[in-house]
Design a protein around this nucleic acid. Structure first.
Lengths: 336, 336
DNA sequence: TTGTACGCGTTATCAC
DNA sequence: GTGATAACGCGTACAA
């Protein structure tokens, strides 16, 4: 390993000067600088970010932590990509963890983030009261919650207007003439799930329809649960004529069930999915969805985090992005 | 921040003893140990992994680097998940970078990995001769290539038998009676693309069919290119009766084109995709695909890497996993 | 403008 | 079994 010291010796200067050439080139004489830079190239010197971080006060490790609930969920993959792209553009590297929707794993990763002295952390908390997240924030590590909220904590937050997303989807179905509209909810611990549930209920009530508990099912945000819950709903004596599914993986499960039962979309049943995934257009019929700006969510989270890192005293902000109902062909008026 | 020193003072012992309690508890007297542990809890002490890494010889940073070509490609998301899961289980954290199929970004991330003193790196190289990867390996950093190969380098490698995957898919189509089978290739820089091309050619030739250049198109592994190339192929005077697409995103693009042209699957055209994604079964008709064990690929890569870290002198190994043709309903005999 | 000297938090070595 | 001490690679007062 080539050290600062080695460069200094080759260039015939002190280690301090080499450090300056690396960190504040303007403060060193052009001739010296050139000599040092030459030595750096000759030796292939790479500064150790580890040693640097140990010495320098917080806020310059050029590392940010990202704890993702599920990397295989395409929505979070988009979000991670947004974080990654923007962070990289700003000179930061991302230390990523996969929490697997598990509060314990989440806690473990947040520990690692602290132990690695990251400059800040971006996190969709597994739970609105995630103790690990609260503790991290209390310890003074800059934290941005993204997609999901942390209740009772003053933290920067980037979310999507979930109530509105579900509301508009439901209203779209109501406008088509549906009355029995079922809702499949994701993991209830995630703040997003409850908000979407709220949107569904609000829309129904405003149209004088009671959101029947029988038409509301709660899953775990994964594919199999979407399939199983859709099967339950479609076996109801009074079958719903439309389905709103609160996440993309569960939507896939529901679609499988619908196909398995030989039902036609939208003839027998209309369906609105959550998250506009690349495959939504390739389906037959193309899927009507609530599109969420996953990539932008990640991008904005990085922005908020960097602001916070640069100005810790800054007042906390919440950014709310808008979802968009994309009407395709999986929704139509119900058969009479 | 609570330091080792603080704990030592509270417990009335030397820093060295605290370090022992943390790293080799057996070597310290039970009473002392208890007192120290109590102090650790009382103060909420967390060892700094940064300081530890500075002091300790390579191989114990508990960090491994993973540079992914595209996090939004579900295949790589699976792979990343496999890496992440297994690494975590072994006590390692993953530092992840998104190279965006760009050799320069790849190089930048590999630099960061070195600067962070990771114990090793897992990488699907952007190119079989990626200079950054070769340099990293030459510098002695444990490296495992996954999914894609690095030519002319003695590195541990985990790949899928791509020749065979494409061969079997093509053979399946031949067995159904197809003769004009087109192939849409992914980024030609990736070793996987060339291997799949090879498999397609081999199968055709063995059945006495010339792999016409007109039926072979080269894309960039992204969705739009799949759509555009499918459009070219389907506009041919002698239209192919079957399509083999070398990656999942391009498959989606091709499906869109097929739908847009109003062609029926498999009546007008059969299609085999690469990668068995969650949505493959939700399509109408469900998609015949070559399934790749993305998760296992990641898992095995970690295993190889850890072996290498623990025994640097070990001879290099290559693990080849087998793909699996999953026949669903997007392939059938061609119309006469 | 440049060099000297110290410290960041930890672990390894050597005494005791 | 435990403590003092040096060292890991770098940044930064402070002095020159």
């Amino acid at each position: 390993m080539v050290r600062l010291q080695d460069v200094a010796e080759l260039a015939g200067v002190s280690p301090a000067t080499v450090s300056r050439v690396v960190n504040a080139p303007a403060t060193v004489h052009p001739d010296t600088r050139a000599r040092v830079q030459e030595a750096i190239r000759a030796l292939g010197y790479r500064p150790s970010r580890v040693a640097r971080r140990l010495r320098v006060e917080r806020g310059s490790s050029a590392l940010i932590g990202l704890v993702i609930p599920d990397l295989q969920n395409p929505f979070f993959a988009d979000l991670a990509r947004g974080v990654e792209d923007h962070a990289q553009r700003e000179g930061y590297t991302v230390l990523i963890g996969n929490a697997d929707e598990d509060a314990e794993k989440e806690a473990r990763y947040l520990e690692v983030m602290r132990a690695e002295s990251v400059d800040g952390v971006i996190l969709p908390p597994s739970h609105p009261a995630s103790p690990a997240a609260l503790e991290l924030a209390a310890a003074g590590t800059p934290l941005v919650c993204v997609d999901r909220r942390l209740a009772k904590a003053k933290v920067d937050t980037v979310v999507v207007d979930n109530v509105r997303g579900a509301y508009e989807a439901t209203e779209h179905l109501l406008a088509l003439g549906h009355r029995r509209i079922a809702f499949i909810e994701g993991r209830p611990q995630a703040s997003t799930s409850r908000e979407r549930l709220q949107g569904w209920q609000d829309a129904l009530r405003e149209h004088g329809i009671d959101p029947l508990p029988a038409l509301q099912r709660t899953g775990d945000s994964r594919q199999p649960s979407g399939g199983a819950l859709a099967a339950e709903l479609l076996a109801l004596p009074e079958r719903p004529t439309a389905l709103l599914v609160g996440n993309s993986l569960m939507t896939l499960g529901a679609l499988e069930t619908i196909h398995r039962l030989g039902l036609r979309i939208p003839g027998d049943i209309s369906i609105v999915g959550y998250d506009d995934m690349p495959w939504a257009m390739a389906l037959t019929p193309p899927l009507t969805v609530v599109r969420q700006p996953g990539y932008d969510l990640g991008r904005q989270a990085v922005e908020l985090l960097l602001h916070r890192i640069r100005d810790p005293a800054r007042s906390t902000t919440t950014v709310m992005l808008q979802p968009e109902l994309v009407v395709r062909q999986s929704t139509a008026s119900p058969a009479l």
